[in-house]
Design a protein around this nucleic acid. Structure first.
Length: 399
DNA sequence: TCTGGGGTCCTAGGACCC
DNA sequence: TCTGGGGTCCTAGGACCC
């Protein structure tokens, strides 16, 4: 099937007020009423609450002031996780190419399915209905030629909407939007752009790339220059593996001593190593994250020679990092502790980094010899090539 | 107004290697 | 006595996203 590259065949599907919608689905008394999920801080809010000014990440007391009749419910993370899995199953009924972005949104490439399911906008309509019928949740779908436009379209189309950006109407749609709508422009970058008099995407598009790079840095400059000109060649691809696993915990006002931080740290390491082992991964780098009373942050990290999933080893490293940060903690007062594990490898894998060029094959031969020595000459190897732009990494998994 | 928890990617300097 | 060019990895910080 010939698929013209300019067919508007990318869908961005985004569940509306996800956590709050799950709560309203599961408890009829919450339907049509302002719902806030989370106590200390707002994790999610229904559209009824948003109409009163409640926003995600807002402090709970402020949210209750804005919306006194809101029903506040504690989060039920496993219910949301189940709902998410069910929704992704529906997505997979509509396209083999689904890229999950988070618990509640995904891209779908539906090009070439015209004769099987229907046109992209028909597929979007059917998808909305299927999610509603099979999972009981409202969802908004944006349809466009590129990922970026599809994502913007779903944001503009919310809630419970369907918005198609036709190929001949892309710049008309894009250029009047505020710069904050550009994917990758947050508070800081928006402020810098505003300082140069740039408030709309159209205005950004009129600025040469080099000037943008000077304003906001190389990667961001290139990125938003391309987006503002409606250039986004990224394909929809099934998600690559996770690169880090972490957990963090904000300390209450009365438990902000280094001793409390250490107790919290033990729990975090336990949680995170359990999750990592369940995923059959091991980590080589341990990162300790801290936040202080003045809301500044610091990280301390350490990389060990051999990746591990052992709680004890990782805890020992994390504790040493905490000790290392003690002067900082004493000075500024600690308010949050977090651990992240990165440089993940497959458990039981032998991970090699091979040089480019002529030595590559030689290095691979040498590595295979090492493995035979370690696991015996009849060991069966499964090679997985993890490509990287420079210095590809090849884990070899003994079966 | 007082700020949770889980992630991704980029930048920049320094150590080290050939 | 002064000092190239190309690369990887580690550490720390920062911005952004949901």
């Amino acid at each position: 099937v010939f698929v013209p590259p300019d067919e508007p065949g990318i869908l961005h599907a985004d569940l509306d007020a996800f956590y709050a919608s799950v709560e309203q689905r599961d408890d009829p008394r919450l339907r049509g009423r302002p719902v806030i999920v989370g106590g200390g801080v707002v994790l999610a809010s229904s559209y009824e609450a948003r109409a009163r000014g409640v926003r995600t990440a807002m402090g709970g007391s402020r949210a209750r002031r804005l919306c006194p009749d809101a029903i506040v419910v504690p989060p039920r993370i496993s219910a949301y996780s189940d709902a998410s899995k069910a929704v992704f199953k529906v997505f997979e009924q509509f396209s083999p190419v689904v890229e999950g972005l988070s618990i509640d949104e995904a891209f779908l490439d539906v090009r070439g399915l015209e004769h099987i399911i229907g046109s992209p906008s028909e597929i979007a309509r059917k998808l909305k209905r299927a999610v509603r019928e099979q999972v009981g949740l409202p969802i908004t779908v944006g349809v466009a030629r590129t990922k970026f436009l599809a994502k913007v379209a779903s944001a503009v189309g919310k809630p419970d909407g369907l918005l198609v950006v036709p190929p001949d109407g892309e710049l008309e749609f894009l250029h009047p939007l505020p710069v904050e709508r550009l994917w990758g422009v947050g508070e800081k970058t928006a402020r810098k752009l505003h300082a140069h008099g740039l408030t709309t995407v159209g205005q950004v598009a009129a600025v040469p790339e080099l000037e943008l790079i000077e304003m906001i840095g190389r990667a961001s400059g290139r990125h938003i220059h391309a987006l503002s000109h409606n250039r986004d060649p990224r394909r929809v691809r099934t998600r690559s593996r996770r690169r880090s696993i972490g957990a963090q915990h904000a300390l209450g006002p009365r438990s902000r001593s280094p001793q409390q931080a250490d107790i919290v740290l033990v729990g975090l390491v336990d949680r995170v190593t359990r999750r990592m082992r369940a995923a059959h991964r091991v980590a080589r780098t341990i990162v300790l994250r801290l936040r202080f009373s003045d809301f500044t942050r610091a990280t301390r990290s350490h990389t060990i020679a051999e990746a591990t999933g052992e709680t004890e080893t990782i805890l020992a490293v994390a504790r040493a990092l905490l000790v290392d940060a003690l002067p900082l903690i004493d000075r500024k007062g600690i308010t949050l502790v977090g651990v992240a594990l990165t440089n993940l490898e497959d458990a039981g894998a032998v991970q090699l980094t091979l040089p480019f060029g002529r030595e590559r094959e030689q290095a691979l031969d040498g590595a295979l010899d090492d493995i035979r020595e370690r696991y015996g000459s009849d060991a069966i190897m499964r090679a997985v090539l993890v490509g990287r732009e420079q210095g590809p990494t090849v884990p070899l998994l003994p079966d």
